[in-house]
Amino acid sequence: MIPSPVLVVTAVPAEADALRPLLDPALVVVEAVGVGPAAAAAGTARLLARRDHRAVISVGIAGGFPGRADVGGTVLTTRTIAADLGAESPDGFLPIEELGFGGSVLEADPVLIAALRAALPQAVAGDVLTLSTVTGTAETTARLAARFPRAVAEAMEGYGVAIAAAGAAVPFAELRTISNPIGPRDRGAWRLADAFAALRAAAPALQRLP
């Protein structure tokens, strides 16, 4: 009996198009669901409702924390964190846990992460932050790095994908390749070609997941 496929969710079509030609659609289904946690959650939930999948992987390009993840490298999430889900206060940011309204942290499936780490030994594992607003200043970079000492990257969809996966009781993981260091916004310094090359190089690992 053929197992149900892995669902790979990307934000934009360019990420999905980079992966599809390298993957057997009977084993891995790749879909772009939109940018941001809300679009990611809604799109992933819709796809999971239509068909059984044995795992969900959030995949795409991300910014890397300097000194923790190199541009052109690959990162794997151990935890996905909604880093801006909470409230401001005179004493600083209050995560949603301190407000008593739920949680901002979801663990990646350890079996999936172990398989990805075995297939991608050069990948860096750590927390991946989900933000609705991409970091663009040195001040915000320093604040996030201090709040999340295990964070290796930030993106905009992982937590949304993870919420949908949790709701459907499907194992979740996140894989990102790094196009730029997190910090002051400088599109001219982004190395998208390197990030897409790393994304394509990681594709075979997605096809060998348990």
Rank of each mutant, 00 (worst) to 15 (best):
F101T: 11
F101E: 15
F101S: 09
F101C: 14
F101P: 12
F101D: 12
G102T: 12
G103L: 12
G103A: 14
G103K: 15
S104R: 07
S104V: 05
V105F: 08
V105R: 13
L106N: 10
L106M: 13
L106D: 08
L106Y: 11
E107P: 15
E107T: 12
E107Y: 11
A108Y: 08
A108M: 09
A108F: 15
D109T: 01
D109E: 02
D109Q: 00
D109V: 03
P110S: 11
P110E: 14
P110N: 09
P110C: 10
V111M: 14
V111P: 03
V111E: 15
V111F: 12
V111C: 12
L112Y: 10
I113C: 10
I113M: 12
A114E: 13
A115V: 05
A115D: 06
A115S: 11
A115I: 11
A115C: 07
L116G: 00
L116R: 01
L116W: 10
L116A: 00
R117H: 03
R117A: 10
R117F: 05
R117W: 05
A118Q: 13
A119N: 03
A119L: 08
A119W: 08
L120F: 00
L120M: 04
L120Y: 00
P121I: 14
P121R: 08
P121S: 09
Q122H: 15
Q122S: 11
A123I: 01
A123V: 00
A123L: 01
A123Q: 01
V124A: 05
V124L: 08
A125S: 06
A125V: 04
A125K: 03
D127C: 03
V128A: 07
V128W: 10
V128M: 08
V128G: 06
L129D: 00
L129N: 00
L129P: 01
T130D: 08
T130V: 02
T130N: 06
T130C: 12
T130A: 04
L131Y: 01
L131C: 12
L131I: 09
L131W: 00
L131N: 05
L131T: 07
L131P: 04
S132Q: 13
S132V: 13
S132C: 06
S132K: 14
S132G: 11
